[in-house]
């Protein structure tokens, strides 16, 4: 089954657009489809469920290097805002409604500047490159 890479973020909020930069750096990956969204929504559950492997790429407000980690379960204590899902919640939709059983990863790309405007900070650019490297390894 095909892989699905979902880049989440708003390129007009500077480092929030880091995930899209990761896709640019990656270029085409064999057997993988890419989607760019400002935010995750429940309607994506069907597409996620149809993939054998899904990688969510998202900017992160917490500092540190880029990370690629298996997706967990959504926090039970969270009050979900259905119009802006976290990756774990989008996955949960896919699992519970459409029986998703594939592999799921979250690639976090830390940034430092989420103000209004375009272009990444130097830190986010570095992290985007690291993130692209991590994802390439996953697909080798």
């Amino acid at each position: 089954m095909a892989a699905l890479l979902i880049a989440i973020g708003n390129v007009f909020r500077r480092d929030d657009g880091a995930a899209r930069r990761v896709l640019e750096l990656l270029g085409p990956l064999p057997g993988a489809r890419t989607v760019e969204v400002m935010q995750l929504s429940p309607e994506m559950a069907e597409d996620i469920a149809a993939a054998g492997r899904v990688v969510f790429i998202d900017a992160d407000v917490n500092p540190g290097p880029a990370r690629l980690e298996p997706a967990g379960s959504p926090s039970a204590s969270r009050s979900p805002l259905a119009h802006a899902l976290h990756p774990e919640e989008a996955l949960e939709y896919a699992r519970r409604l459409y029986g998703f059983q594939g592999e799921a990863w979250i690639c976090r790309v830390p940034g430092t500047d989420f103000s209004t405007g375009e272009g990444l900070s130097a830190e986010a650019e570095t992290n985007a490159r690291e993130a692209a490297g991590l994802i390439r390894k996953l697909f080798r």
Binding site: P42, S79, Y93, R96
Partner: peptide, 18 residues
Amino acid sequence: RNIFGLIDCEADFARRGI
């Protein structure tokens, strides 16, 4: 008391909503 709770009880209803 959220959409996941609803899915557990009424999956078809939730799926239709989506």
